[in-house]
Computed example of a mutant assay.
Amino acid sequence: MRVIHTIAELRAHLRAQPAAPVFVPTMGNLHDGHLALIHRARELAGTTGAPVVASIFVNRLQFGPNEDFDTYPRTMARDIELLTSAGCDVLFAPTEAELYPQPQGYKVVPPTELADILEGHFRPGFFTGVSTVVHKLFNLVQPQAAVFGKKDYQQLMIIRNMVTQMGLPIEIHGSDTLRADDGLALSSRNGYLSAQERSEAVQLITVLQGIREAVKAQRNDATLSLASVAQLEAQAMAALTAWGWKPDYVLVRRQRDLLPATDEDLVRGEPLVSLAAAKLGKTRLIDNLEL
């Protein structure tokens, strides 16, 4: 695997390749969930000669003033070993000065109706930071396709919409969330959990699974309603709180736009997704399940 730190070297190297790359952007501190994205990229590249390119960059623009930018784990040596073993061809790992040589005055601001709800409500400006860095990386790598994890459900939707509205010739592929044996979604921030917290962290997926089973049962007996959905959300919030979590939200939304379902949506079986974000100790975790 070739490790590249400058934009000039990246462009020169990719111009010499026989096909446009398949791209996996990350912030590093890699785990098996990231490696699953690399394996998916390898499948998409196939036998075309297209290189699989990963990036590692901890993007300051998407961190709020009281978030963990300074303490976010940087594990470059280990990440390089993992990417090499997973079959990645190129790692682009720029410094902050390389990627942002000037203050980033030009930014990609996604529509408020999607970017200011759920995660965007609790992390103002987060999706502007994400959209800006991803768009910039897309311009530099110029991939034919890019792979993102479904754990960041809202982020995946925003990036897909950005690519469509900006007319970028990139196929966006969502990869299913990889989970530990007990169901916890793999995340770089899981490393912040104490041993006791790690054993309790499965409670987040437990409440989402409870919502999924209840929605399925209520659909089967035609009792699913806005009132019953609101009750399921409130029960999930109460359960997390009783277990010692500090939940930001547990909500059921439409898969297509993450807006609340209407009565008509529920009657016609609109595809739904349950999404949750909550703090366990000092660690904030997110997860989701399609219903």
Rank of each mutant, 00 (worst) to 15 (best):
Arg2Cys: 02
Ile7His: 04
Ile7Asn: 07
Leu10Ile: 06
His13Phe: 14
Ala16Val: 09
Ala16Tyr: 11
Val22Ser: 04
Phe23Gln: 12
His31Asp: 05
Arg40Asn: 06
Thr48His: 03
Gly49Tyr: 07
Pro51Gln: 12
Ser55Pro: 12
Ser55Trp: 13
Ile56Asp: 10
Phe57Leu: 14
Gln62Pro: 13
Glu67Phe: 05
Thr71His: 02
Arg78Pro: 09
Glu81Asp: 14
Leu83Gly: 06
Cys88Trp: 02
Cys88Asn: 07
Leu91Lys: 07
Phe92Gly: 08
Thr95Gly: 15
Glu96Met: 04
Glu96Gln: 13
Pro103Ile: 06
Tyr106Gln: 14
Tyr106Arg: 03
Val108Ala: 01
Val109Ile: 13
Leu118Asp: 14
Glu119Phe: 03
Pro124Met: 11
Leu137Phe: 05
Leu137Ala: 09
Leu140Thr: 12
Pro143Leu: 15
Pro143Ala: 15
Phe148Arg: 15
Lys150Ser: 15
Asp152Trp: 10
Asp152Lys: 11
Asp152Ala: 10
Gln154Lys: 14
Gln155Glu: 15
Ile159Asn: 08
Thr164Arg: 14
Gln165Thr: 12
Met166Gln: 10
Met166Ser: 02
Met166Gly: 01
Ile172Glu: 11
Leu178Met: 14
Arg179Ser: 10
Ala180Thr: 10
Leu186Ile: 11
Gly191Ala: 08
Ser194Cys: 00
Gln196Leu: 01
Glu197Thr: 00
Glu197Phe: 01
Arg212Trp: 04
Lys216Phe: 03
Leu226Asn: 06
Leu226Gln: 03
Ala227Cys: 00
Ala234Gly: 00
Gly244Val: 00
Trp245Lys: 05
Pro247Tyr: 01
Asp248His: 09
Val252Gln: 00
Arg256Pro: 00
Asp265Cys: 05
Gly269Leu: 02
Thr283Tyr: 02
Arg284Gln: 06
Arg284His: 05
Ile286Tyr: 08
